[in-house]
């Protein structure tokens, strides 16, 4: 069995013991494996096993996850560039609290507090409030600076997770304008930007920087270490 197959056996083996795959035929399990398992990025067998276990657990209730979604949309409102659901922010938060259990108490208590406060102030749970009412609650905890009380700490935590979740997603990365992670030919900062900042490679440096056109010529040196190709 090659490595790929043995990983697959491991994945299917561990999925099989979960509810998701109870009663499935081996072939169906393979298909489900291909579909649900999108996170293939150089895991060791131990890490893969850990992730599968987490992916097969449920932490937040449907209601809690819905509150998270509503909250996330207030923190990063949808635009044409992207929205919370496209960025899979609720899924990310569901995963991260299982991955890093220290988040669990803070977030669960915080979500309870949101509903409690909205019921006290507006007689309904947080998601049923109007946007103005919701913001009225958030404004009480969103501007803490130094020492934070429990509710402020909750909001700061969920805000961090929502923002990081949004910008590290496919739509968020585009929205931010990050252009890398693809084969590139680096030839320095674009001229116009360089100029704007008052720099110039020609003026400030007397080096021969790499020549993108000669990158595939095999390097040779003279005996003094001067590159001659």
């Amino acid at each position: 069995m090659n490595r790929r197959e043995s990983l697959k056996t491991l994945v299917i083996g561990s999925l099989a013991s979960s509810l998701v795959l109870e009663g499935c035929l081996p072939k169906e399990k393979e298909i489900i494996y291909e579909n649900v398992w999108k996170y293939k990025y150089g895991r060791t067998p131990e890490e893969l096993e850990r992730d599968l276990k987490l992916l097969n657990q449920v932490f937040f209730s449907k209601e809690e996850l819905n509150t998270i979604r509503v909250l996330a949309n207030l923190i990063v409102p949808p635009t044409n560039e992207g929205n919370i659901d496209q960025a899979e922010v609720p899924e990310f938060i569901e995963f991260i609290v299982k991955d890093t259990p220290s988040f669990q108490g803070v977030l669960r208590d915080g979500l309870k507090w949101l509903d409690k406060t909205s019921t006290e102030n507006f007689g309904k749970d947080f998601v049923s409030c109007s946007e103005i009412e919701q913001k009225n609650i958030l404004d009480k905890v969103a501007f803490a600076t130094r020492k934070k009380n429990k509710e402020e700490a909750f909001f700061s935590t969920i805000r961090n997770l929502v923002i990081t979740g949004y910008f590290s997603s496919e739509v968020g990365i585009k929205d931010l304008g990050y252009k890398g992670n693809q084969p590139n030919v680096w030839d320095g900062v674009p001229e116009d930007i360089l100029k704007e900042h008052g720099f110039s490679y020609k003026k400030d440096w007397n080096y021969k920087f790499l020549d993108p056109l000669k990158r595939n010529d095999i390097a040779e040196w003279d005996e003094n270490g001067n590159l001659i190709t």
Binding site: R3, R4, L7, K38, Y39, K40, Y41, G42, E46, E47, R50, D51, L54, L55, E88, F92, F95, I96, D99, T100, T164, G165, S168, S169, E170, I173, N181, Q182
Partner: peptide, 20 residues
Amino acid sequence: DQQLHLKWPYESPRRGKGST
């Protein structure tokens, strides 16, 4: 199966967090 480069943050369910 072991390759890590040229992966996107969202290919990790924890978006690259160093949990392990």
